[in-house]
Simulated scan of single mutants.
Amino acid sequence: MTQSFAAAIAAFAPRLPLGVALSGGADSSALLIACAERWPGQVSALHVHHGLQAAADDFERQCRALCARLGVPLAVRHVDARPAAGQSPEDAARQARYAAFSALAQASQARLAIQSIAIAQHADDQVETILLALSRGAGVAGLAAMPQHWQRGSLHWHRPLLRVAGAELRQWLRTRGETWIEDPTNSDERYTRNRIRARLLPALAQTFPHFRDTLARSAAHAAQASELLLELAQADLAQIGTPPRIAALRALSHARQANVLRHWLKSCHATTPSAAQLAELQRLIAACRTRGHGIDLKVGAARVVRAGANLACLDCYN
Rank of each mutant, 00 (worst) to 15 (best):
P209F: 03
P83V: 04
N259Y: 09
A251R: 12
R250I: 00
S102Q: 09
P160A: 05
V20T: 03
S267Q: 13
G24L: 01
C316R: 15
M146F: 09
L237P: 07
D188W: 12
R193G: 12
V260A: 08
C288L: 06
V79W: 02
E280G: 01
T290L: 14
C316T: 13
L252C: 04
K298D: 10
L70I: 02
Q121N: 15
Q3W: 12
L278K: 12
S274F: 09
D124N: 10
Q234W: 08
G71V: 00
P160G: 08
D213Y: 04
R190C: 11
R77E: 08
H149Q: 15
E189I: 13
R159D: 03
R15W: 08
A248W: 06
P160C: 06
H269F: 11
A238R: 09
A107E: 09
D236V: 06
R38I: 00
L52W: 06
A247G: 00
G166N: 12
A81R: 03
D213W: 06
R195F: 11
R193N: 13
L22M: 01
L104S: 01
D91H: 13
F101L: 14
A99I: 02
S102D: 11
A198E: 11
G139M: 11
A235E: 10
Y191G: 07
A133L: 05
C316K: 13
L46I: 00
D125A: 09
I181T: 02
I295C: 03
S187G: 15
G86N: 09
H158S: 05
R174H: 06
G142L: 08
A99K: 09
A85L: 08
A302Y: 11
D315V: 07
P73K: 02
P40G: 06
G166C: 06
Q126C: 09
P14M: 12
E128Q: 15
R170T: 03
N186Y: 15
S4R: 06
S218A: 14
D188L: 07
F12T: 05
M1I: 10
L161C: 08
A36E: 02
A118S: 08
A133Q: 05
L297N: 00
A84W: 05
L66A: 03
P202W: 07
R170I: 02
L261E: 02
R82D: 04
G86Y: 09
H269A: 06
S23T: 03
A255D: 13
G308M: 11
Q148C: 09
Q109P: 01
Q171C: 05
S23D: 04
C316G: 02
D315W: 05
A21N: 04
A302V: 07
R217G: 04
N310R: 13
R217C: 09
W264C: 05
R197N: 13
T192E: 15
A105W: 05
